[in-house]
Design a protein around this nucleic acid. Structure first.
Lengths: 147, 147
DNA sequence: TTTCATGTAACTTTTGATATTACGAATATG
DNA sequence: CATATTCGTAATATCAAAAGTTACATGAAA
């Protein structure tokens, strides 16, 4: 299975945008992120629907942030992306007739559900603004490496 | 992405085998599990290397359980399968040069690591014998449905 | 009106899991 | 010992999901 890296991608994009005064084009974001402008538009389009960013066409167009990043959480972004499947491990059949398989699924489902709940709780507590601040700290430590 | 269902599969196989006195052939297991005999051999081969099952060729050959299932945990099986990736969501690049992406990865990695740790802890506490017992209970409730 | 930039459908590529084919090796049975 | 059975395994094919690409329409600014 190929892993879904859109959450990572949109975070990356948002942080770059937060550093810019003016809108960034899909082209520019794609270069930052080592991907394709169309992929950027597709993914950022979901954030636009959620009111987190806005897009403008034509000259001086591009993507800009509309929400307050200190109020947007990882969990919201995950939801905006359509709540993609979290696990790469799963049952062979989700609706088995076989009684044995039903017991197997029951044993696994509980464990996965708890882990997913923990992950989403954690996501709910991480605000994008916090990540931006973390970036600022790292950036600072490079500009002034002597402590 | 297709999900890795081998953990589910080997559990299914072990429980069926536990119900049998004699060895079960790859063919028979494959039918139970709605898959292919070669896939069964490949996966069960890993359990054999770990000493959980044994295989015999020729007449009356097949797969049989050698370990005490009440001492084998889900976590062990996960290890035996090579500790496959747990998450279907991940970073765009694991070793980014971009400082922004480093902050993004840091934010996500922590959350995923905690969720994985919880999952594996849970796995460590589930013994295959317990699942077999759960199955026996369900099986019983069908044989004697009037409570 | 030309250029820039998004919007989006359609298609291709890539990747990882699973399935299949084919054949070799070992073992029990008559 | 000949044969049927069953695993062992390499090589290949199929499948599904994510990501990338192409192509072109739409809209906005200079």
């Amino acid at each position: 299975m190929k892993r879904d890296s859109r959450l990572s991608s949109v975070l990356h994009a948002l942080l770059h945008m937060a550093e810019h005064d003016r809108p960034m084009t899909s082209e520019a974001l794609a270069q930052c992120m080592n991907t394709n402008p169309v992929v950027v538009r597709r993914t950022m389009g979901l954030l636009r629907e959620a009111g987190i960013v806005a897009s403008a066409r034509g000259h001086a167009g591009g993507w800009s942030i509309t929400a307050d990043l200190s109020t947007v959480t990882l969990r919201q972004l995950h939801e905006v992306l359509g709540e993609p499947a979290v696990f790469a491990i799963g049952n062979h059949s989700e609706v088995p007739e076989c009684l044995v398989e039903q017991s197997v699924n029951a044993a696994l489902d509980g464990a996965f559900a708890k882990a997913e709940a923990l992950l989403l709780e954690h996501f709910a507590q991480v605000r994008i603004g916090d990540i931006a601040a973390d970036f600022a700290r790292r950036h600072q430590s490079i500009r002034t490496p002597q402590a």
